[in-house]
């Protein structure tokens, strides 16, 4: 009887050993993998969602004007936007996502809502300090 049990124990332990996998090596490899320096991607003026949008010159004209405004005018007039993504940046993003017409309309709509009182018209979840959170949604 005792011999039989011992045999079962021995077989079971063999079975248990069979389950050992080289997990530790994998984990060590992941943990101590040398930090890779990512190659800097080539900077594009705009990243369009739809391919054909890249061939629309109006998109570039609009983005170019906004770029000029952001780098030349905005700093001079010390523009202080009520939104977390400033109106000009938001317009640029909208042009990328929705094209020139809808993007411009959205941007100007935000511009007309950019006043100190706008903060009281949004729920608490969308207020960060004294700025309104206005990211583009997933559904957009």
């Amino acid at each position: 009887m005792c011999q039989k049990l011992l045999l079962i124990f021995f077989l079971a332990s063999l079975l248990g050993r069979g389950q050992d996998r080289p997990v530790n090596d994998e984990l060590l490899k992941v943990s101590f993998e040398p930090y890779k320096i990512e190659k800097t991607k080539t900077r594009k003026l705009l990243r369009f969602k739809k391919k054909y949008a890249a061939y629309n010159p109006l998109n570039y004209a609009g983005a170019g004007l906004l770029y000029l405004y952001q780098n030349l005018v905005s700093e001079q007039i010390q523009a202080n936007c009520s939104y977390q993504i400033s109106c000009s940046e938001y317009t640029k993003l909208c042009i990328q996502h929705h094209g020139f017409i809808i993007g411009t309309l959205r941007g100007f709509n935000q511009l007309s809502e950019c006043h100190p009182g706008a903060i009281y018209e949004h729920p608490q979840l969308f207020i960060n300090g004294n700025k309104i959170i206005n990211g583009l949604d997933k559904e957009d």
Binding site: T104, L105, R106, H122, P123, D137
Partner: peptide
């Protein structure tokens, strides 16, 4: 035009918020 579009968006955005 942006005000007309904004009238539409105001309700859609406020719903989401």
């Amino acid at each position: 035009l942006s005000n007309v579009y904004g009238g539409y968006r105001a309700i859609v955005d406020l719903r989401k918020e």
